[in-house]
Amino acid sequence: MSDTIPTTAGAEGAAAEPDEAPRSARILVAVLFVLLLVPGLIGFDAWPLTGWRLFSKSRGPEVTRWVIEAVDQDGSSRVVSLEELPLRYRHAEWPMSELPGASEAKKTAVCEALLTPVRNILPGTEELVIARDHARLVEGDDGHWTTTHDLEPFHSCNGAHLL
């Protein structure tokens, strides 16, 4: 490795430069701090601008999450973890959480977007239900914790629009 890297200007060129940050650097730094501080202090997200609200909301024994439930031809059902689906579907909980207040078409579109990959892993799936899971952690007498679930169906689809 040479002494001066790279050698476009050479060591003499480096020595001749004023020993201070250039004006362009000061402008860049000013812009960066505005973009970092404004969302950081206010707390809004417009990625890559962010409020850095990492795990900022305290958690308790009760959580409501959005889940999908596959129903087969004989009416039996099971909750399908989004982790069982390919990577592109694993954040579907967030689009699902925005469905209250959305149009029926939007609800069905999100539901059917998930129905296809669910049928790939559970071919007998007749219907997919988007549901709110009111889950609760309960501490047992032995100190171990178990989770109870209470599913509240929100929207269902059977792929009729896909045919």
């Binding site: 890297i5 476009t8 480096a14 650097a25 730094v29 960066l32 954040h91 925005e98």
Partner: peptide, 26 residues
């Protein structure tokens, strides 16, 4: 995909000043 992800943001932000880093370094 809906969720705000922070996994890459610290590296992106910490690297941003280097976009104008001096090219001639002894």
């Amino acid at each position: 995909r809906g969720k705000v992800l922070h996994n890459d943001l610290l590296l992106l932000w910490a690297s941003a000043p280097f976009l104008l880093t001096p090219v001639t370094v002894d």
